[in-house]
Design a protein around this nucleic acid. Structure first.
Lengths: 392, 392
DNA sequence: AAACTTTGTTTATCCACTAGACAAAGTGCG
DNA sequence: CGCACTTTGTCTAGTGGATAAACAAAGTTT
C-alpha cells in the first residue's frame, strides 16, 4: 500500500471539510457551505444530514433572509464531547477540561511538593481523575487526553529526555493510554504552546509562526505552512542551544555561549543575584518579584531590558532564517512584556534583514499559562474529529 | 472555491501516482504497479494506456516470468521532452539541458566579461538560445526553463534583492516567459541546490535536509518532510546572517557577528590576506590556489580548519534547531572537503545535542557545480508532469 | 397578488474505481 | 507430453459518490 489510494477518501475529505467550515464559520447555512467549498448543494445536504446524525453539528433556528427563503443555520455541536489537556511543568501541573471548541470548563493547577517522579506521576493521575469526574454528560464523553512536557518526545509518545525533570525514556503515552483507555497525545511543551497560540491565541491568522517559549530555558515551536513542524525523529526546536557567543558561558548541554544562558528566566535571576544593589536589599529574587520591582527600581528595569536585547539577538537569527509572519513570546517571560518588548523590538528592527521585517508581527502570548495545555487540547480534538469521520 | 474539491482529482492523483512509480521503479509491470499502489488492476491498465497515448511511458519487451504469464515491462519515456536549467552565478553562468530523467545532454558554462546587468542578461539569453538549439527532437520539446539566482526571489518570480549582483526588483520570470513562451521557474540558488541534491545527489534517501551553500556568502536551503520549505513571503534561508558573536565583526547587512563573516569563501580569503606568511610569498590568494597550497603549507591547512570549525558552529545551531537527517555542504567550499570536514565534524560531535546526532549524516555535495542547475531542472520537470496530466 | 429570490431536497446521470470473470501465456510435475 | 496451476492483463457489470437540474418551500419586492 502506497500513500494515496482513493475512493471513500473523497467522501471523508469532503465531510471533514464541511465540518471544519461549519466549526469555523458557524452559524452558516447549507447553501453558504456549498458556495464556500465549491461542492454541490445536494452533496452538502447529504453530508450535513450524516453529521447531524452523528451529533457533531446541530440546526439552530432560521437565519436572516437575503431576499428569499430563510436559511436554516448550522452550528458545530461543541458540547458533543470534552477534551483534557495537561501542561506538565517543572514545578507545577496545569490540567484543563474543555469542550470541542476549546472553551475551558474546568481547570486545576497544583504545585508539586517535591519534583520526584512519583510525586509528579501521582499528581498527573489525580488531576486527570479529577477532570474526568467533572466532565458534564455528553454524547462522546472525554474524547482524548493531551500532555505537554518540557522535553524531547518521540513519535511514539515516549519522553526521551527531559533535563529539567531529570527524566529519561519514560513511556508516558502508553502508561496513560493503558490506564484510561482513551487516545493520548504527548507533545513537547514549546510545540504545544506554538499550536495553542495558533489555534486559540494571538496567532490565529498566521501560517508561519515562531513561538519562543522563554521559561527556565528557551524552547522553540515552529508553525510552518499552518502546521507544526517536527524534525526527522519528531523532536526539534531546541533552538535555546543556539550559539550566540562562540566562546561564551559554558552550558550544561556541553556547548558554549548558548542563547538560553543569556535570555531566559534563569539568566535573569543569575544576573539579579550578581547585582550588588538588588542583592543587598535582601529581596526575594524571583521572576514575579523582579517584575514588581521594575516599576520603581531602575536597576531591575535595565535587567529586563538586557534580557529583551538578548532575546532579540536570537530572534533576529530566527527571523532571518524562517522569515516568519509572526513571532510569539510565550511561557514565563511573557509576563515581562512591559519591560522586555521595547528592547527586543529595538534589536530586531536594527539588525534583522529589512525584507523580512515587512508584515512581521511580534506579539506576546495571549493565552498566558494556558498556551501549552490549549495546544495539546487542539491536537486531541483534531485527531478525534478526523478519526471519528474516517471509520464511518 | 476552497481547497479540496474533488472528482477528477482522484483520477489525476492516481495517474500522477502511477507515473511516478513507473518513473522511479522502472522497469515495472502493470501488475506490480497495481500491487504497489493498492489500485485495482483494471484501473492501472486504463491509466497506463492513457499515459502511453500521451507518450510519457512506453512498453519495453516482456520481463522474466515468476511462474506464470510473462509481464510486459513499462518504462518512463525520459526522452519525451527536455528541460533547461540555469545557474546564474555572481561571475559565471552555467546552463544545462537534460532529458526528463535529469540526464545531462548538453552543457554550457561562461564567465562574464564584466558583471553588468546587460552583460549577464545577454549571456543568459544566448545560453538559453544555444541550449534550445541543441535540443534533440522529441514529442514535447523543451518543457520549461528553470533559473537559480543568488538572491531573494518572490513567489511571482521577481528577484527582490541580489546583493552580490547589485540587483533589485528584476522581474526575471516574466521577461524570460515572454521571450520564450515556455513555463519558467525562478528560485534562490541555495534552495535549488538543496533540491538538486535531494533529487539527484547525495540526499536522495532523506526527508529532512539542510543544505549549506558556502560560497562567497552562506545560504541555506531547507528540505522539510521531503519538500522545499520557503518562508511566508517565499524567501527565507538567509541563515548566513545568523549571529554567532554578539559583538563581532560588522556585516554589510547591518548586523554584527554574522556567521558568513567567519565561515565563507570571503572569510577564508580575508584571513589569508591577513596572514603574514601567506601574503608575503606573493601567492594569488584565491580559493583554488589555497586549496593547492594546503597540500604542503601548514598555515593554509590551518586556515581551512578554522573555516571548518566556524562552519561547524553554525551547523551545530542548525542541527539543534531542525534535527535534520542530513547536512549537505555545497557550493564553492565543497571543494575543500579534505581539509574542512574533519574540523567541522569535530565541532559538531562535541557541541551538538547528542540525541540529534543519532543517524545524522554529514556530506559534501555530490553534484558539485551542478547542484543548483539540477535543482531547478527538477522543479521544472515536476511542474510539467503534473500540469500535463491535469488538463487532460 | 404577481414576479422574483433564495434555500434545501430529490431525481436522473455521470465518472472513476472495484470485484471478479476470462483469455492469454507462462511454469512445473507426473 | 499433457494437465493443473500461476500470473498477467483486459473486459464487464456493479457501486459509491459527485453533479446538474428540476422542484417545492418560504421568503421579499413592487
Amino acid at each position: 500500500m502506497n500513500q494515496t489510494w482513493n475512493q471513500h477518501v473523497v467522501k471523508k475529505e469532503n465531510k471533514t471539510l464541511v465540518l471544519e467550515i461549519i466549526k469555523n464559520q458557524a452559524p452558516i447555512s447549507r447553501a453558504d457551505v456549498a458556495q464556500v467549498t465549491g461542492l454541490n448543494k445536494g452533496t452538502v445536504s447529504s453530508l450535513v444530514s450524516e453529521l447531524i446524525k452523528e451529533q457533531l453539528i446541530q440546526e439552530s433556528g432560521p437565519g436572516e433572509s437575503s431576499g428569499g427563503r430563510r436559511p436554516v443555520m448550522l452550528l458545530f455541536n461543541h458540547l458533543a464531547g470534552y477534551s483534557i489537556g495537561i501542561d506538565l511543568g517543572v514545578n507545577y501541573l496545569l490540567g484543563v477540561l474543555t469542550d470541542l471548541d476549546g472553551n475551558i470548563v474546568h481547570e486545576r493547577k497544583v504545585q508539586y511538593k517535591d519534583s520526584s517522579y512519583q510525586e509528579i506521576m501521582q499528581q498527573l493521575f489525580e488531576s486527570i481523575d479529577d477532570l474526568i469526574a467533572s466532565t458534564p454528560s455528553s454524547h462522546y464523553g472525554v474524547i482524548g487526553i493531551g500532555i505537554g512536557v518540557p522535553g524531547i518526545v518521540s513519535n511514539e509518545g515516549e519522553i526521551l529526555l527531559a533535563p529539567n525533570l531529570n527524566w529519561k525514556r519514560i513511556k508516558l503515552k502508553k502508561m496513560v493510554e493503558d490506564h484510561y483507555e482513551l487516545p493520548v497525545i504527548i507533545e513537547n511543551e514549546a510545540n504545544a504552546g506554538a499550536y495553542g497560540e495558533k489555534m486559540f491565541g494571538v496567532g490565529q491568522d498566521c501560517q508561519d509562526i515562531v513561538y519562543v517559549s522563554a521559561g527556565v530555558g528557551i524552547g522553540i515551536g515552529l508553525i510552518l505552512n499552518g502546521s507544526l513542524y517536527k524534525g526527522s525523529a519528531g523532536f526539534s526546536g531546541e533552538l535555546g542551544h543556539m550559539t550566540i557567543e562562540v566562546n561564551g558561558l559554558e552550558c550544561s548541554c556541553g556547548n558554549k555561549g548558548c542563547w538560553e544562558l543569556y535570555a531566559s528566566e534563569q539568566a535573569l535571576i543569575r544576573k539579579a543575584e550578581q547585582s550588588v544593589t538588588l542583592n543587598s536589599k535582601g529581596y526575594d529574587l524571583t521572576l514575579d518579584r523582579l517584575n514588581q520591582l521594575a516599576e520603581s527600581d531602575k536597576e531591575a528595569t535595565s535587567l529586563f531590558e538586557e534580557i529583551g536585547d538578548y532575546l532579540g539577538v536570537g530572534i533576529t537569527t530566527i527571523v532571518n532564517t524562517f522569515n516568519p509572519e509572526q513571532i510569539i513570546i510565550g511561557n514565563r517571560l511573557a509576563s515581562t512584556e512591559k519591560w522586555v518588548k521595547p528592547a527586543l523590538i529595538n534589536r530586531i528592527t536594527n539588525y534583522a534583514l529589512k525584507q523580512h521585517q515587512n508584515n512581521l508581527k511580534i506579539n506576546f502570548s495571549k493565552l498566558n499559562i494556558h498556551s501549552t495545555a490549549m495546544g495539546v487540547i487542539a491536537f486531541t480534538i483534531e485527531k478525534f474529529l478526523e478519526v471519528d469521520l474516517t471509520h464511518k
